[in-house]
Amino acid sequence: MTWLAWATFSIAALLAAARLSDAIRGRGRALFAIFALMAIAILLSIQGPYLALDALLGGRNFANLVIRFTLFGLALLLAQRVAAAFGAHRATKILTGPWGLGAFAACSAALMASFVLAGPGPSQVGFAGQNAWWTAAYGTIGRLYPTFTGIVLLPSLAKAAASSGRASLRIAAGLLGAGYAMLAATNVITVLPPEALAVAQLLNYGTILLVFAGLTLVWASSLIVRLKDERPSSLGRKKSTH
């Protein structure tokens, strides 16, 4: 299902491009970084780009580590942006406090250790080490920290989806909550048989697309509010000139 990966990458790249001009002017840089990091991670999950980068890194699947740490950074940045959008101050404190930073450090150390113990072999998209058990452990550990951020956010997203606020934000919260729930479900991927590859890809890219949709709605909602706020002030300036 390479077409799904390319389609998801194209959406991420277009969303990043749409935010580029605002990011250059100093607005919405976090959202631009989120879409850009997503685009990079998705691109490296495709065979051609993955093999090209890994060849530069020595051809021992170090490109897979690049993907994993890109996703770790993306997970933290995304969770902070979502928490800010929905006023989830408690979630922000957890993510950036001792528990959150400890989880990030522990998962990063475990990821590196499992990568070495798996015995990385020649370049291969999806990473297949020489030790099957540690290869599976590496895949699971790579999903633990992003799942942790989702678990921290889910209560706030559920509350926002059930609130009486703006419909766009309630829908966005529902989409993001569904995306994080699907992210948790991706932890079963490492125990799925090889013939279930299509299911694994649907879980992975379905998660990304749900998050894309939620973030886009959050951005659109904030843009509408900003335009409404700017309209009265612009009308006032016009009246003052007459």
Rank of each mutant, 00 (worst) to 15 (best):
A41D: 13
L20K: 04
I42N: 02
L183W: 03
P146K: 03
F72S: 03
R60Y: 10
L209G: 01
Q80C: 11
A84V: 09
L111K: 01
R19C: 14
W219I: 14
S45I: 02
D22A: 15
F69W: 01
T135E: 09
I208S: 06
L51K: 04
L77A: 11
S10E: 04
L117Y: 09
L154V: 14
I141W: 05
A85E: 08
T140F: 15
R29I: 15
L95S: 03
I189R: 05
A160M: 12
G126N: 11
I94S: 05
A103E: 11
G73Q: 04
L202H: 09
L31A: 11
S163Q: 02
A33N: 10
S240P: 01
G174R: 00
T92N: 04
L111Y: 02
R25D: 14
P49Q: 07
L223H: 05
W6D: 02
V66T: 09
A5I: 14
P49C: 04
G73A: 04
A103F: 14
S114P: 07
A79Y: 03
L15C: 14
F86I: 14
K238Y: 07
T190D: 04
T216R: 15
I151V: 15
S222E: 15
V66Q: 08
I34R: 05
A178L: 15
A220L: 13
I151T: 14
A23V: 13
L203G: 00
G165F: 09
D22W: 08
Q80L: 10
Q80W: 05
L169E: 10
N61Y: 08
I189P: 01
L192S: 01
S164H: 13
L157D: 08
V225P: 00
G59T: 10
S21N: 07
E230R: 10
A184R: 03
W3N: 06
R81D: 13
A55K: 07
H89A: 14
S222K: 15
Y145N: 08
A33H: 12
N131M: 06
A136I: 06
L78Q: 11
A39Y: 14
F72G: 01
Q47R: 07
L154H: 05
I42Q: 05
G129C: 08
T140P: 00
W99F: 14
L14E: 04
Y180V: 02
L37Y: 12
S240R: 09
A132G: 04
D54N: 11
A33D: 06
S114K: 06
L235V: 06
R68W: 03
Q201D: 04
P122V: 03
L44C: 08
G121F: 09
Q124N: 10
N64I: 10
T216M: 12
G59K: 08
A106Q: 01
L217I: 01
W6Q: 04
A103H: 13
A88P: 05
A30Y: 06
T8S: 15
I34K: 11
L217C: 00
G142P: 09
A33G: 14
L144S: 11
F32L: 13
R143Y: 12
T241L: 12
A23Q: 11
G126E: 05
K238D: 06
R29D: 02
A173D: 00
Y50R: 03
M112G: 06
S123V: 02
S222F: 12
I94V: 15
A132Y: 12
S45M: 09
L202V: 13
P193S: 03
S156K: 02
V191K: 02
A200T: 02
I11N: 01
D22T: 12
I46Q: 09
